[in-house]
Design a binder for these strands. Structure first.
Length: 433
RNA sequence: UCCCCGAUAGCUCAAUGGUAGAGCAUGCGGCUGUUAACCGCAGGGUUGUAGGUUCGAGCCCUACUCGGGGAGCCA
């Protein structure tokens, strides 16, 4: 009985005859010899078909099988230095399930519009393959990290009755009677409720922003991880974020080396991601900017994209900027007792121009102060009644953060644009496929 | 919402206002070590849409549509 295996596991089968099931990634023929670059989802391997080794029919069929033809091949696994990847299959038998002609995505250059319109097929290319496998590794590392620390995954709802922060543009859903509903823009408020119930929690799910943003850092729909920790201070939140990022990067380096090579990622940049990350107060960050680009940043304003670029380029690892002026931050953030003009918040800026990958804070835990802010921001008080209950019954210091999955993956993979970090990216002018 | 850029063969692009081209892909043929193979032959076009200027528009002008990059805002 010939074992069926995957390309990923070929190293365990050298010298054996195995069966692989996959697709033609590329092919070049040299008379009585076909080189088939086979892909099966787990990897890529070269299969060599000599005319004398297989039936006349199979040799002909493989000769006419274009890119993405589906086929099953059986052959001897050899270590072969001349082959890409180091292994090669000496094909003895097989079957072409479907012969394909004219697969649109050829091994040549393509523009972003064409590729995005063919995303369902583009995913079969090597780059997306590597990115999706790293994305998966990031997700599982995140879950493992929190699982090991005793966090409970409790997901927040996607439909919400009101805006979380009251500022962003939301997607309206017309379904619920007599009441407007929206797609969530953050699961945080609900995570605060579950943190009061279960202690240490996180939610991890899709998030929607209807902002008319058109940059390489923006998606209309993206995945966000939001841990929330009861009895945590801002320092605890920063430490947790730092540990998480180190754990995730280490995990990718250990488990996805081949994929990082496919992406030609500079590994030294990932190896330097170790604790401690630089911690910079807003005031220090402003001073740094004044020195680097005098007059560019106005004290009191939030940092713009050019400011963030300067700040992140100053370090070889993510930089944590904390204690922003309260005016530029959300209503639910607690004030710094040492300086009431500042909020106890932190933004983590990834290196290499990806920008903010984490935004977090210690939350306001005082009922009266929180109520005052809701009024100040002219938010609908009724919609926040349940949220205020959390400060009415056993309020404690607590905090958490939100991590943008696609931005994190884009940073780790060294991608130009976050859209490549999403299997089917949704953007302002793109909903297909 | 604002600023900048683009749209020509399936793809990536070229074409001084004067016969619309190349490479790749596709099909057929050749080749026993290819790595985006190579060689030969073949098919492939309402130049995004609508209007205008001109003897003549892929090229100049106007509007629109679609897309890309960036700003603001954010993860």
């Amino acid at each position: 009985m010939i074992p069926i295996t995957t390309i990923e596991r070929l190293a365990n089968h050298v010298g054996e005859t195995v069966t692989l099931r996959g697709w033609v990634h590329n092919k070049s023929s040299k008379g009585k010899l076909h080189f088939v670059q086979l892909r099966d989802g787990s990897g890529y391997v070269q299969c060599v078909v000599f005319k004398g080794d297989v039936s006349e029919e199979l040799f002909e069929a493989i000769g006419h099988a274009g890119q993405e033809s589906s086929l099953v091949l059986t052959g001897l696994v050899k270590a072969e230095p001349r082959a890409p990847g180091g292994f090669e299959i000496g094909v003895k038998a097989g079957d072409v399930l479907q012969k394909v002609e004219g697969f649109p995505i050829t091994p040549k250059e393509h523009g972003p519009d064409f590729l995005l319109s063919h995303r369902h097929l583009w995913l079969r290319s090597k780059r997306p393959w590597a990115v999706m496998r790293i994305r998966d590794c990031v997700i599982s590392a995140i879950r493992r990290f929190y699982d090991e620390q005793g966090f409970v995954c409790v997901d927040s709802p996607i439909f919400t009755p009101a805006a979380c922060e009251g500022t962003s543009t939301l997607f309206e859903v017309n379904y619920f009677d007599d009441e407007k509903a929206y797609l969530t823009q953050s699961g945080q408020l609900y995570a605060e409720a579950t943190a009061m119930a279960l202690g240490k929690v996180y939610c991890f799910g899709p998030t929607f922003r209807a902002e008319k943003s058109k940059t390489r850092r923006h998606l209309t729909e993206f995945w966000m991880l939001e841990p929330e920790i009861a009895y945590a201070t801002l320092d605890d939140v920063m430490q947790n974020a730092e540990e998480l990022l180190c754990y995730v990067v280490k995990s990718v380096l250990e488990r996805r080396q081949t994929e990082l090579e496919v992406l030609e990622r500079d590994l030294t940049k990932l190896h330097s991601i170790t604790a401690p990350f630089p911690r910079l107060s807003y005031d220090d960050a402003h001073a740094l900017l004044e020195k680097a680009a005098p007059g560019q940043h106005k004290y009191g304003d939030d940092f713009g994209a050019p400011d963030e670029t300067i700040l992140s380029n100053a370090y070889d690892r993510p930089v944590m900027v904390h204690r922003y002026p309260k005016e530029v931050k959300a209503f639910y953030m607690k004030r710094d007792a040492a300086d009431p003009t500042k909020a106890l918040c932190v933004d983590v800026l990834a290196p290499e121009g990806i920008g903010e990958i984490i935004g977090g804070s210690q939350r306001e835990d005082d009922l009266e102060l929180l109520l005052g802010r809701i009024k100040e921001h002219q938010l609908p008080e009724e919609a926040f009644a349940w949220y205020l209950d959390l400060r009415r019954y056993g309020s404690v210091p607590h905090g958490g953060f939100g991590l943008g999955l696609e931005r994190t993956v884009a940073w780790i993979c060294g991608l130009e644009h976050v859209r490549e970090a999403s299997p089917f990216p949704r953007m302002m002018y793109r909903i297909y496929p």
